[in-house]
C-alpha cells in the first residue's frame, strides 16, 4: 500500500520534485512543540492580557473587570516611573562601559597569537557563573567592611559605599553585570572584526591613513552589525535585571535599585495584585520593545562588505 501511494505521489509531483509521501509525519514531528507552546505560551499570553484588565488577588475567586483601571494605576504609580529611572541609570552606565570594554577586548584578542584560547575562556567564565552565585560573591566582596573596602581603606583611608549609597548602588550593579558580559559581547565583536577584509586596511595604509583613521573609517562603520546586536542585547537586558538587586540590595537603598522585574515580582507575588502586576509587565514589555526599536533605528546601517 505504501508503494502505491508513493508511486501516485511521484507522478503528480513530477520528476524534478522530491517524493512528497512524507508530509503527514511532519505534523507528528512538530506536534510536541506546537501543542506545548499553545498551552504554555499562547494561552498564558492571552490570559495575561485579560488579567491586566481585572482586579484580582490570586487567592480569592472574585475577579472584577476594571477596564483600563490597572493601566491608570501604572501610569500614576511613582514606583513604576522610579523603575524606569532605575533602568535608565543602569542603561546609561552599562551600555557604554560594556561596549568599550568588550570592543577593546576583541581588538586585543585579534592581535594575539598565543594563549588566545586561555584569554577567551578567562573573560567568558564570568558569563557561566550563576546569577545567584556571583550576586552573593559581589555582595560580600564589596560590602562596607569587605575585602575590597579593606584594601581601599589601607590605600586611601576611605570606604566606598558600593551598594549602600542610593546614588552608587545601581551603578555598582551595572558594573557587576559588565563583568559578566564582557567576554560574551567581546566574542560578538571579535567575529565582526574577523569578517572585515584585510585588504581594506592594506589599501588604506597605502593611501597614508594612520592606525586611528583606519579604526575610525573602516573598523567602526564595518562593525555596525556587531554594534547593533550588542546594543539591542544590552537594551533588552537592562529591562530584565532581577537577581542582582533581589539578592544584593533588595531594591534599596530608597528604591534606588528597584528594577521593573523586582517591582513586578513584589506587586504580584508579595502583594498578590495580579492585575496590577500584569499591567506593569505589559507596560514594561512595550517600553522595552520601543527602546530596542529606537536603538535599532538610531544605529543600524546597511553595511556592504
Amino acid at each position: 500500500m505504501a508503494t502505491s501511494i508513493s508511486a501516485q505521489e511521484r507522478v503528480s509531483a513530477g520528476p524534478a520534485k522530491r517524493p512528497r509521501r512524507i508530509h503527514w509525519i511532519a505534523y507528528l514531528l512538530v506536534a510536541p512543540y506546537v501543542i506545548y507552546n499553545l498551552v504554555f505560551w499562547v494561552y498564558p499570553f492571552v490570559w495575561g492580557l485579560i488579567i491586566a484588565f481585572q482586579e484580582w488577588n490570586i487567592v480569592s475567586p472574585r475577579k472584577e473587570w476594571v477596564g483600563l483601571g490597572n493601566f491608570q494605576q501604572v501610569v500614576t504609580n511613582s514606583q513604576f516611573w522610579n523603575a524606569l529611572w532605575v533602568t535608565a541609570k543602569f542603561w546609561i552606565v552599562f551600555l557604554p562601559a560594556v561596549t568599550v570594554a568588550s570592543l577593546l577586548l576583541a581588538l586585543m584578542l585579534q592581535r594575539v597569537s598565543h594563549f588566545r584560547g586561555f584569554y577567551i575562556a578567562a573573560y567568558l567564565a564570568s558569563y557561566t557563573m550563576a546569577g545567584v552565585a556571583y550576586s552573593v560573591v559581589f555582595m560580600l566582596l564589596l560590602s562596607g567592611n569587605g575585602l575590597i573596602n579593606t584594601w581601599i581603606w589601607k590605600l586611601f583611608h576611605v570606604r566606598v559605599p558600593w551598594f549602600t549609597d542610593p546614588r552608587l548602588a545601581m551603578i555598582s550593579i551595572a558594573m557587576v553585570v559588565v563583568w559578566k558580559f564582557v567576554g560574551y559581547y567581546g566574542l560578538i565583536f571579535l567575529a565582526g572584526l574577523n569578517a572585515i577584509p584585510r585588504e581594506l586596511y592594506d589599501a588604506a595604509a597605502v593611501d597614508g591613513a594612520n592606525a586611528w583613521q583606519r579604526f575610525l573609517h573602516i573598523t567602526i562603520p564595518l562593525l555596525n552589525p556587531s554594534f547593533t546586536v550588542v546594543f539591542v542585547f544590552a537594551t533588552i537586558l537592562s529591562y530584565g535585571i532581577f537577581t542582582e538587586p533581589y539578592l544584593i540590595t533588595g531594591g534599596g537603598p530608597l528604591g534606588s535599585t528597584q528594577t521593573f522585574m523586582l517591582l513586578i515580582y513584589q506587586k504580584t507575588f508579595e502583594n498578590l495584585e495580579a492585575g496590577l502586576g500584569s499591567a506593569m509587565a505589559i507596560s514594561m514589555a512595550a517600553l522595552s520593545f520601543a527602546s530596542t526599536g529606537v536603538v535599532r533605528r538610531l544605529i543600524e546601517r546597511e553595511v556592504a562588505l
Binding site: H23, Y27, P44, G48, F260, M261, I264, I282, M284, F289
Partner: peptide, 30 residues
Amino acid sequence: LEFRARDALFNAILYQMIFPGILFLIPTFL
C-alpha cells in the same frame, strides 16, 4: 520536510525569540 503551515510556524518561532519573558511570568504561574 514540506508541509502546509511550515513557513507560518517558522515565522511564529522567530517571533517567539524576541518576546519578553516577563509577559508570561504571571499567567504561567497562575
